[in-house]
Design a protein around this nucleic acid. Structure first.
Length: 153
DNA sequence: GCCAACGTTGGC
DNA sequence: GCCAACGTTGGC
């Protein structure tokens, strides 16, 4: 089993929105970056654990946990001219973008802020705290996962 | 709202 | 295949 971190803007889709979906489940559409897509398409597997991260907000940070409940399939929002994520180069015959489904697991009692994460010697290798990293889907090592969990328990 | 850090596009 | 121009992300 692998571990991941997914970023989302809470004003668009926050962890409470995920919790409130039917079965707490939603497809993770709109990823339009090749590196992030490759992680989702090739490496995210059923049952993988996901940190849910709030970006572009007052206190950016990790706010809870979800899990992968469906492995990659084409992101159909790319076919919809009305969608913000429309991409005419992605077709049903030859889809360019993919997504997974994730399901709500838990919301933390507090935000583990980016500031706090940056201050941890144990997390200096994490892509998230690296300079200028804007990837919206990134792997988390088992050690990093367990260490971050230990911050709230 | 500013802007640094990237990623993508397209002319050549 | 280089690289300038442009667009986007996301912390601050």
């Amino acid at each position: 089993m692998k571990y991941w971190l997914l970023k989302s803007e809470p004003s668009v889709f926050g962890i409470k929105d995920l919790k409130n979906m039917p079965n707490g489940t939603e497809h993770w559409d709109g990823v339009r970056n090749y590196q992030a897509r490759n992680f989702m398409r090739d490496e995210m597997k059923y049952g993988d654990q996901v940190f849910f991260y709030h970006s572009n907000c007052k206190v950016p940070g990790i706010v809870g946990i979800a899990k992968v409940v469906r492995e990659s399939y084409p992101d159909f929002t790319a076919y919809d001219p009305e969608s913000n994520y429309y991409d005419p180069k992605s077709t049903r015959e030859n889809p360019r973008w993919f997504m997974v489904d994730i399901s709500f697991e838990r919301e933390f009692s507090r935000v583990i802020s980016l500031n706090e994460l940056k201050a941890c010697v144990e997390l200096q290798e994490m892509a998230l705290v690296g300079r200028g990293n804007r990837l919206s889907v990134m792997p988390v090592s088992k050690d990093q996962w367990q260490f971050i969990l230990s911050l709230i328990e």
